[in-house]
Design a protein around this nucleic acid. Structure first.
Lengths: 206, 206, 206, 206
DNA sequence: TATGAATGAGCCTTCATTCAT
DNA sequence: AATGAATGAAGGCTCATTCAT
């Protein structure tokens, strides 16, 4: 399985690297939300992170590494939160509904971050892009597994090769809540949106 | 209703403006597909379009205008094609299914263009963005109307305020076919994808 | 035979390229004499040449190209001058002596330029270096030919494979006048230096 | 007479200074040979020397000091070796020939070092340059003295003020073997080169 | 109208040097 | 004495935009 991409650093202390990169990512996300990756300068990121441009480059090899770090971080956060919310109890279908609900809530909560990620990934160099897509596949797998459990428990009627598709639909509809917010938030609350999409996704499949 | 944004030009002859901008957009799309908006230079666009950088700036005010023109053009093309395909005959539900089918096919056919547009709109200056979002709303309206006809004909069971949501879902799932092609095209043909999504969108709503 | 390296330019008019590059080289030589290649910035060169940094990069691809242009120019000037001075009359030996005399005088006259060239060539990228060494070989050939004529005329006693070595010695002793000027100019006039070296080079070979 | 330049150090123990600087010089020479002074970073030198960048700056005041130390070291090595080879026996002329032979052999053996030195001295700050030129003068003196002995012994016919010039010629022709190696080594062995140059230098002067 | 040379602000990145530990 | 993280001035280069022809 594809592991994380190794971002080069001149600094040896791994703990320090972790701390500084966290500062960096935090600052970068704020800026990327505002102006996008390309319009944000490395100096701005350094300043926002609270250190000098020289220090910034002690912890990365190139500007694109920051974008990778940001994407990586957001995925990590999303899946960490999602895994924490996943229930071990209840019927498979109940667990799937909960997963959807949790995922949509997380996406709503991290709206800016998720939006940034989906808008900027394409700026990643090819190799990094692979790593990030891998994360997306892992997210899908989490849902696929629960869906498969529903199928096995006869709670959902989805053909084998469509499990994957359903998982993607869930993910996309979650993201849709962020990148269509200009249209959706005016008319629906998150809860309404969740209910409706859940219905749509699962009703016909009972 | 929001009309088109006025892109400044030093040239008077409207016919000439049209011709030159068409060349420009054609060249720009090819380049944006390849390298994205930010990595494409105005010089490259001029060259690809077949004229000089000086001439380019006779027909636009700034680089961003090109992006606007490109987005505008793609929307125009998509809706032109879609409208051409819309049927006046058959039941409302049949017409909706056809609309979905047509839309998905158009999106598949214009895959690169659609992808570019969704990835780059955010680079538009706020004002232009409004104009482009307006186009998206118009696209939605087309679908909404047909959906409403289905509801009126009792062929579909969707509550009033959910019509809009359903329309957005259709649009997003069409786009999904482009920006998730790395995952989807490996497993499904376009027809399979259309069938499945149509089912999902409409089955539970019968 | 190795032709000149092609230095890239965004400008089309070849005449203009010639003019601008001449300005560039002139300014660069002055600066390189003063501070060497590495300590001279592209901005300084542009300023000295009388145009902006942007314009500078319309006529070259990278800073190293300027160094190449400078070396190329100096060689061209030296060999142009030398060829102009070469006599067609007199005995072969007289013509060789004249050639030596001319070469030393040219080197003295272009002292700064020659010094810069020999101190900075090593900063050239490998490929460019080949082109410049080629020029040096051409300089040597000019002398070799005259030496060979001396041998054929029985005016000089040099074995076949040593013709080349003698030519190199002449070149190096000419350059020595520049890079050892801190020691030589204090004690000898150019004429004295020429006489003595000529004697040394040719006396034992009569 | 000009003594050695004082390179500043924060460390007191002179023995330790000696050791560290030796490590430093050794590493630096290797790197300078490869990439030249300007393209070599202080960090690289520290690493190659086996200690940290902080430690490096405990033993020098600035990067240029390293270059000075390197040049100084190379001169020291060359003259140490040369002095060791000088004979006290035989005729003056024999001793001169031996000196030339030895010098050329040393230069051949330390080819890289000598080349680096002559290519980089100009990067030294003015003051340091003086110290290094002084070393070159001392090298010349060694030869001058032997030449003078030849003259006194009537084994060589050189006018008083030309002794110095002859010494310089010897030195330059030795160096020529390094900085023209691209041309010379293809055609001559070191021994051939020595024989030929010795002949040239001394034949006409017998 | 069309051209393309000129401009310079601004970007990413490097690296000599410092200093707290 | 030794370390190495932090600094920021400075460098090479790009590219959107202008304007004289």
């Amino acid at each position: 399985m594809l592991r994380n991409k190794k971002v080069p650093s001149m600094v040896k202390d791994p703990q320090l690297i972790k701390v500084r990169r966290a500062q960096m990512v935090k600052g970068a996300v704020r800026l990327f939300i505002d102006k996008g990756f390309h319009r944000t300068t490395t100096r701005e990121i350094a300043k926002e992170a609270g250190f000098s441009i020289g220090t910034l480059y002690e912890y990365i090899g190139a500007k694109e590494d920051i974008l990778y770090l940001v994407c990586d971080d957001i995925y990590l956060e999303v899946s960490k939160r999602l895994k924490k919310q996943l229930s071990k109890e209840g019927s498979a279908l109940e667990r799937l509904k909960l997963a959807i609900h949790s995922y949509f809530q997380i996406v709503d909560d991290m709206s800016d971050e998720v939006l940034v990620m989906y808008q900027e990934v394409k700026a990643l160099p090819k190799e990094s892009l692979q790593y990030v897509l891998q994360k997306e596949k892992e997210m899908a797998s989490i849902l696929e597994e629960i869906i498969r459990e529903c199928v096995e428990a006869n709670e959902l009627n989805v053909k084998g090769d469509e499990v994957n598709l359903l998982a993607h639909n869930i993910l996309v509809q979650g993201q849709m809540w962020t990148f269509r917010r200009w249209a959706l938030r005016k008319q629906y609350t998150l809860e309404q949106y969740i209910d409706w999409q859940t219905d749509l996704l699962l009703k016909g499949k009972g």
